[in-house]
Design a protein around this nucleic acid. Structure first.
Lengths: 243, 243
DNA sequence: CGGTTACTTGATGCATATCAAAGAGGGTGG
DNA sequence: CCACCCTCTTTGATATGCATCAAGTAACCG
């Protein structure tokens, strides 16, 4: 329990290999932890993988784990009684999954392509909070960020036109690439038109049409493999802001 | 009032009067605190009041305080560049205001009628976290609840019809009355049609029309003073769930 | 009691949904 | 390696739910 005097380096050698060379450590739950704390946290994690379309968690299911995305993309969604779907978010490497104050998960999560996560038992992680208050602080910080993002999404869903929605979506994806040290442009769009539609409160047809309109106006260029080049980022940002 | 242990009672006598007879203590930040911890927290709170329409915080302004609503109703909102407004939420007694992981507030807040709050310096409150970890845990729990509510709102905004939106809104207001130990029915609607419209992604006209439609269908009855009687709660709940 | 603001109702228009079908990839088995 | 199939995407034609424009009515307040 006492801090060790050994260097971080020495301690890291003791870490499970998966943590030692984790590419997203600086942007996730682990960011504020020192070597010894990392070691404690790594001691209780499990690595799991999912293939395209696999269910990671189901809304309403008992919330026994929380997760960190280490690679790939995750789609979060909720369903209405008659099957209408709302995608509540997309998670990228470094993002956190499974936070809830209830007994059950509040939304479902599916793998969008191959996904790797590290998984923690919720009770074990919470037990660590006493020992490492920084962890809980970090979680609160991440939750606050999610809350801010959720409010932006409410503005988008409630008051933006289709063009403004798509522009906002592309700018947001680009900004998240920057945060993950991926070039801002081109924007990688791994999700289907239908996923985008359910995320923006539109239909696939309208998403498709709106992409072509932005292309015709010269704001974007569509490339193979779901890549979108932002040929006029300033104009897109103005559109996204509702100017 | 709940029965209290003698020891608690003694300590409570030392509390500022505003905390000693606070009606929302059990549902807010203070809920998990014992007498002594309450005392510490009360030591750094200020009581402030606002009249109808007053700005409580402004989006983008430096986030130096956090608040607890003790009486009245608060409207949270965000604006687009051209003035379009989205109401991101309504706060009732017991609700928390001002949480952010950034330097600034993420949305604006206005009083909807007379409002009383207790205000804490953000830095002082955060300093208390070390001493009272329960406080931070409580804040994380409240943030998680807010996040779940935000996702429900995304489903509403993205995929529900006007009728489903109004039904969901009324059921949610009723449920929050129950949580505050106010009878489930009639639902008190202190906000204007325009507030409701900006909350549900509609126009005032559509809100008004939809209320009359629900009335004609026999699901609600509109009474003076913004009271709505839920004459067929089951039907409203089915409608809200998208059945 | 008069002025003001909020609410309701009606007529019309439009952005986006819906219905329909034709391309475009992308993976698989022959 | 090609042909086929399946799914995703794009484009077109039409429909519709809600917005917009426009009065009138009720509620509120000084």
């Amino acid at each position: 329990m006492k801090p060790r005097l050994a260097t971080d380096n020495t301690i890291n050698l003791d870490l499970p290999a998966v943590c030692a060379d984790c590419g997203v450590r600086e942007m996730t739950l682990c960011a504020p932890l020192d070597g010894q704390e990392m070691h404690k946290l790594c001691g209780l994690l499990q690595r799991i993988e999912f293939a395209d379309g696999d269910a990671i968690i189901d809304e309403g299911e008992s919330a026994e784990h929380v997760f960190n995305v280490t690679s790939g993309v995750v789609r979060l969604f909720k369903l209405l009684a008659d099957g209408r779907r709302t995608v509540t978010g997309f998670l990228f490497p470094g993002d956190f999954l499974g936070l809830t104050n209830r007994e059950t998960y509040v939304s479902s999560a599916e793998a969008l392509g191959d996904v790797r996560l590290c998984r923690f038992s919720r009770t074990k992680l919470e037990a660590l909070f006493t020992d490492i208050p920084k962890l809980e602080k970090r979680l609160l910080g991440m939750a606050s960020n999610d809350l801010a993002a959720a409010q932006d999404q409410m503005v988008l869903l409630g008051r933006k036109s289709a063009g403004e929605k798509i522009a906002s979506f592309l700018i947001a994806l680009s900004d998240r690439q920057i945060a993950r040290a991926v070039p801002a442009d081109p924007v990688l769009v791994p999700m289907t038109r239908s996923d985008i539609a359910d995320y923006l409160g539109l239909t696939t047809e309208t998403v498709s049409r709106t992409f072509t309109q932005l292309k015709v106006k010269g704001l974007i260029r569509l490339e193979a493999g779901g890549k979108v080049v932002l040929t006029d980022r300033d104009a897109l940002e103005d559109l996204a802001a509702g100017a």
